[in-house]
Amino acid sequence: MSSQGAILIGIGTVKVPRDPETLDDPKRTMVDLARQSRRRDIREDMVPRLGSGRSVGPAYTSRMIEFATDSGRWRPEVAAENSRSLGRCRNALKRLIHGGS
């Protein structure tokens, strides 16, 4: 996640881990970050209710889709600078599109 992501979920950019590849459970980290959000709507959508027995909130997926698909929010080229696996994925997709081997 980038600074854009931090703004989206209403937390400070310093709280966002710099190296997502090292996280044991990225989804849990994401939920924990949302828990600290200043925005109530983000907390209610992304963080599971007490007693729900689930690891994510009722509209977690919807919020992630919104972040990834709204133009200008998620910038994969920037995200790839911090995530080697995303970089590799982008390269593979580029090769596929351009018909290279």
């Binding site: 599971p48 209710r49 509209a59």
Partner: peptide, 9 residues
């Protein structure tokens, strides 16, 4: 299949 549906729901 939605992973946000709580057990108590």
């Amino acid at each position: 299949q939605d992973e946000g549906i709580g057990l108590d729901e």
